[in-house]
Amino acid sequence: TGYYDVLGVKPDASDNELKKAYRKMALKFHPDKNPDGAEQFKQISQAYEVLSDEKKRQIYDQ
């Protein structure tokens, strides 16, 4: 599964769309709200870390 799929956004998503999707998913799977969501929360955080950084995103998109 790709990072875009993890966040539920298209590859041409804007920074604002990425942030909005990340916040929505992070709230849904945060371990405090969803004890079984810890692994998914890590994936969401990693996806956002890469896609929100312009240089990392360019490398990922290659």
Rank of each mutant, 00 (worst) to 15 (best):
N16A: 15
Y3A: 03
K55F: 12
L18H: 02
Q62T: 09
K28T: 09
D15R: 14
L51I: 05
L51Y: 00
G2E: 09
G37E: 09
E17M: 05
G8V: 02
G37F: 15
A26F: 14
Y22L: 06
A26V: 14
Q58C: 12
D53V: 07
P31S: 08
I59L: 12
I44R: 00
G8P: 00
Q62E: 11
K24E: 15
F29W: 08
I59P: 02
G37W: 12
G8K: 05
Y22P: 01
R57W: 04
A38V: 09
K24T: 07
D15E: 13
Y3E: 01
Y4H: 03
V50R: 02
E54G: 09
Y22S: 02
P35H: 06
R57E: 01
D15G: 11
E17L: 03
R23V: 13
A26I: 14
Y4I: 00
K56V: 05
D36E: 13
F29M: 03
S45H: 12
Y48K: 02
G8E: 08
I59N: 09
K33G: 08
Q43G: 04
Q46G: 06
Q43R: 12
E49C: 14
V9C: 09
A26L: 15
P35S: 06
D15L: 15
P31F: 06
L51K: 00
Q58H: 10
R23W: 13
Q43F: 11
P35T: 04
Q40Y: 13
S45E: 14
Q58F: 12
K55I: 10
Y4F: 07
K28Q: 12
P11C: 14
E54M: 13
D5R: 08
E54D: 11
K42S: 10
K24C: 14
A26Q: 10
D12P: 02
G37M: 11
E39K: 07
A38K: 08
S52E: 03
E54Y: 13
R57N: 02
Y48E: 02
S45G: 06
L27K: 13
E17Y: 01
V6S: 04
K20G: 06
E17N: 00
V9G: 02
Y3I: 04
G8N: 05
R23Q: 15
Y4S: 01
Q40N: 05
V9T: 05
V50D: 03
K55N: 09
D36F: 10
Y22E: 04
L51N: 02
N34W: 08
Q58Y: 12
K24F: 08
R57I: 03
V50F: 09
P35G: 05
E17G: 02
P31Q: 07
R23E: 15
S52N: 04
D12A: 04
R23T: 13
R23A: 14
V9S: 02
N16K: 13
K20D: 15
E49L: 08
Y3F: 09
L7P: 01
D12W: 13
A38L: 12
Y60K: 03
T1I: 14
E54T: 14
